[in-house]
Design a protein around this nucleic acid. Structure first.
Lengths: 115, 115
DNA sequence: GATTTATATTCCGATATGGGTATACGTCAA
DNA sequence: TTGACGTATACCCATATCGGAATATAAATC
């Protein structure tokens, strides 16, 4: 079985660098497809496809305006990732604390060597 | 070109649900491979491979102990994801604020219907 | 209705992924 | 040395991904 469907899983949808860049661009505000195409210098079908994926997982929403389709970020869609990562923040914060301790000890003891 | 190498990109490494579960398990503390195998009920080669990916992207570190290999989470490796997602937190926080406003308005005006 | 503009969809090929099975490697014990 | 245990690796298959080119759909304009 290959990876969980990219169209189902937010983690997967965001695993694609281009989709992240598209989201980053849309974060500035609602934009039509062509704005993405021009800004990121991509082929239009490619952009449409990536936007399709982002839409399926709920990371963007669309609104038709004449012949344009305006895409906007739905940041709440990132909450699963946020929540998951946050659970680890404490872990590495602890390590950073220990690093701080270490560095402070170094300082008070004088630098032992190089690195 | 297929997706960016799973062994290079932290986002990608974590896109695989099983790898997330493995990380979650390791978050409780350093564990040998077999503990993962038993706990998650997976095949051993599968686990070794996923651990290999996690190691390559720096999400876990290994330490040999006799014939065991003890894996431990390196939570700092998740920082890129953390940083990226945090940039969006404000966006959806705003929306939640608006939701708060909405709910408060509802309450002060009396519940319109049910739910 | 015909044409242009904006976007979506389809089909294709190359590639790498994840799972499975078998096997190799490394370490400890007898 | 031989064997048992813990883990890593190699190989194969089925599948889905991304990108590209061509084409289809939808809406506005003439």
């Amino acid at each position: 079985m290959p990876r969980a469907a990219t169209t189902t899983d937010v983690f997967n949808a965001v695993a694609e660098p281009l989709r992240r860049r598209i989201l980053d661009f849309l974060a500035r505000g609602e934009q039509p497809v062509n704005a993405v195409v021009d800004s990121l210098r991509l082929c239009q079908p490619q952009v449409s496809k990536h936007l399709g994926v982002l839409k399926q997982v709920g990371l963007v929403s669309v609104r038709g305006n004449g012949r344009q389709r305006l895409y906007r970020v739905n940041a709440e869609g990132l909450k699963p990732i946020h929540d998951w990562v946050m659970a680890y923040e404490k872990l590495w914060a602890d390590r950073l604390d220990r690093l701080d301790d270490y560095l402070q000890r170094l300082q008070s003891e004088g630098t032992p060597d190089d690195r």
